[in-house]
Design a protein around this nucleic acid. Sequence first.
DNA 1: GTCTAAACGAGACGGTACGTCTCGTCTTACT
DNA 2: AGTAAGACGAGACGTACCGTCTCGTTTAGAC
Lengths: 201, 201, 201, 201
Amino acid sequence: MTTGTDPERSRGRPRSPESHRAILAATREVLDEVGYVRLTVEGVATRAGVGKSTVYRWWPSKSALVLEAVGSALAAPPRPTGDVRADIRAVLANIVEDLRGPLAVTLLALGSDALHDAPAAAEPVDLLQADRGAVQDMIEDAGRRGDLPADVDADLLLDVCVGTLLYRLLCRRPTEDVVDRLVDLVVEGRIPRTGPETEPT
Amino acid sequence: MTTGTDPERSRGRPRSPESHRAILAATREVLDEVGYVRLTVEGVATRAGVGKSTVYRWWPSKSALVLEAVGSALAAPPRPTGDVRADIRAVLANIVEDLRGPLAVTLLALGSDALHDAPAAAEPVDLLQADRGAVQDMIEDAGRRGDLPADVDADLLLDVCVGTLLYRLLCRRPTEDVVDRLVDLVVEGRIPRTGPETEPT
Amino acid sequence: MTTGTDPERSRGRPRSPESHRAILAATREVLDEVGYVRLTVEGVATRAGVGKSTVYRWWPSKSALVLEAVGSALAAPPRPTGDVRADIRAVLANIVEDLRGPLAVTLLALGSDALHDAPAAAEPVDLLQADRGAVQDMIEDAGRRGDLPADVDADLLLDVCVGTLLYRLLCRRPTEDVVDRLVDLVVEGRIPRTGPETEPT
Amino acid sequence: MTTGTDPERSRGRPRSPESHRAILAATREVLDEVGYVRLTVEGVATRAGVGKSTVYRWWPSKSALVLEAVGSALAAPPRPTGDVRADIRAVLANIVEDLRGPLAVTLLALGSDALHDAPAAAEPVDLLQADRGAVQDMIEDAGRRGDLPADVDADLLLDVCVGTLLYRLLCRRPTEDVVDRLVDLVVEGRIPRTGPETEPT
DNA sequence: GTCTAAACGAGACGGTACGTCTCGTCTTACT
DNA sequence: AGTAAGACGAGACGTACCGTCTCGTTTAGAC
C-alpha cells in the first residue's frame, strides 16, 4: 500500500524525520532535567543538533512542542479484557506510569498556561485521556453486564481515579498501593482503610 | 518587668502595611486578569502604586509573591459539627469555592514550577490543605464514633475528594453536584450514578 | 587559491549594518542632549529603533558603547604640510573642534570611570590621540629640519597643547585665540601675553 | 548688641562633629578604593558608622559630598617668596601632590557630571585653583618686577601648567621632571627637550 | 532636674537603570 | 526547498543605588 508521496506535500526538500524525532526526544530530556518553565526552545534545538527555526517551523510555540513531546511518550492504552477490575487497574497503572517523570508537572504547567487561552485550554489535560472514550465504554459495558450499577456515571468514576492519582503525585505522596484501593472504592464501594493491605475478595 | 517592645524588632522605619496589602491585592487582581505566566512583578507594583523594589524587598520572587497572594485569599476552614457528611461537605464546598477564579490554575502553575526546586516543592499544593490536619482528625473521629470504618484511611479519602474536584475544575467539567456524590462515595461507598439525582438516605 | 569567504565567519544571519549605525548615531544624539551620566542604554535603543539586546550583543556595557560612539565622531587627522606651525595649528584646531559638543565631558566621564579598571584604563584618553604617533613624527621631523630644537621632547610638547586645551574647555574658559598662542609658546618660546593679539613674526 | 547664641539656631541637639568628620574621611577612603562612579552614599554611611539620612542632612547629593571631601584634602597653598620660578614650582608641586591618589580622576568625574548642570558646573574644576587668584597676583607681580613680560597672560600661563599636569596624570604618563620643564617653558620660553636633564641657567 | 527640639541610627519607600535572559521572527549561506 | 546558525525587536527578570520618608533614640541647651 503506497501511502507514498502526496504531490502537494512533497515539493522541495521533505521534512527530515530524524530532526523531528531528535527534537521531541531532546524536549523530553530537557523537560526531565529542568522542567517546563526553565525549558528553552533554544536549549532544545541545540541539544537536538537543530536550528531554532526548524523547531518553530513545525511547532508554533514552546507549549505546542512540549504538548506533543509529552503526548508522544504516553503509554499505549491497554486492551479491555472484560474483567472490570482488571481493566480499570490497567488504565490506572498506565496513568501512574505516565505521570512518573516530568509529565505530571508538565501537564499542570501546560494546563495552567493554557487555561488563560480559551482555544488551547482543554488540550493538555485531555492528553491523559486520549483513550477516555474507550475507557468509558468499557465501564458502561461493565454496567450492562451487571459488574457495576447499570446507570454508573463513568465520567465521574474515571475522574475520581485520575484526579486522585494526579493529585497524590503532585503532592509527592506515595501511589504504589493506591491503585488497588481506588479500584476497590469505585468498583465495590469499599471505603479505603489503613492496615495490612486490602485483602482479595 | 515586662519591657514589651522588643528592642531588636523596632529599629528603622517600619514596614508599611498599606503597601503590603496593596501588593497582595494587586497580585490577586492581575492574576485574575491575565493569569500566572503573564503576570509581571512590575505590573503588580504599578497597580499597587508601589516601587518594584518594595515587592522584591518582601518576596524573593514572582512565585513567592503569588503563593502568598493566593494563600491569603483562601476561605477559612469550617468548624466541625460532628456530622461527618456535613463536615466533609463543608470542606469540599470551601475547596470548590477557592478553586473558582484563578486559584486552581495558579496553584497548578506554582506547583509545577516548584516541583523542580526540592525545597519549595510541597508548599503550593499544600495551600489547599492548610487545614488538612484538622480535617483528618475529624475523619478519624468519625471512625471512632462508628460513622466510618474504625481504621479509615483519612489521608487517601481526603485525596480522593480534593483530587477529583481539582481535576474536574482543571478539565472544566461541572462540579456542582459532584460534592454530594463524592461524599456518598467516600462515606457510604455508593458508586456514582447518572440519573435523577442522589436521593437522600 | 583564495577561498575568499572565511567558512568560520559566515554562518547565520549577518550583523545588520543599519542597526549598528543607528545605535552609534543615537548614542551621539543622546550624549549631546543629556550627557554621559544621564544617557540610558534603553533610551539609545529606543531612539535607534532597536532592541536593547542588540546593543548589548555588540557592546558589553554603556561605557564601551559611548567610547566607540565618541571615537567614531572624531575629526580625521590632518595631513602634514611641512610647516611646523601650520601643522600643529591644524592638529590643535582638530582637537578644539572635537571637544566642542559633548565629547570633552564624555571623555572625562569615561576616563574617570575607566581609571579604576586597570584594563580599560588608557583607552578613553587615548582617543584624542589616535594620531598621536603621526603628530610626534611630524614634530620630530621639524626638529631634524631645524624648525625646533633637534632633541625636542615631542611627547611633552604635545601634552602641553592638548592638556591646556582640554583644561580650558573643561573650565569653560574661551579657547578661540589660545591655539595661536600655544603654538607661539611651544614653537617659539614666546610667553603668552594679554594685549592686542599676537603679531605675526 | 550681644550676638551671643542665636535663640533661633540653638534649640535641640547640635550637629555632631565626629559624624561630620567620619563621613568625609569615609568618603575619601571609598573614593580611593572604588572611584567616584562606584562610590555609594550608603557605603560611605556604613563605613562612617552613620545613617544615610545624616549624610543627606548635610550634603544635598553624592556629588556635593564628594566635592567637599576632595576639597578638604587638598594641600594648603604655598606662601609666595618673590622668586617667580620657585613660587610657580611650589604651586605645581602642590597640584601634583593633590592629583596623586584618586583626586584627579574624581575631579574629572565631578567635572563631567557637573557640566550638564549649568549651576554646579564650574565648581569642581575650580577646586584645583582655590588659590588661583593669589597665584595670578604672584605672576603679575613678577611681570611688574620684570621677571616676566609686563603684560604676561597669567591666566593662560597657569592653565598651561595645570592642564599639562592634569592631562599627563590622566594619561598615566610620568610627571616627576615635568614640573621643572614646565617652569622653564612658561618662565623662560625654553622649549622642552629630551636628554640629560634641564641644566641650571 | 525636667522639658524639648533637632540630630541621630536604621532602614523602608517610590523610582529608575542596569545587564541578563528568553521569546518568536527574520535573514543569511549551505546542502 | 529545507536547514543550521544566529541576529533581530520586544519585554520581563532580579539587582543595585538614588534621594526621600518615617520611625524610635539620643543629647545638649532652655527653662
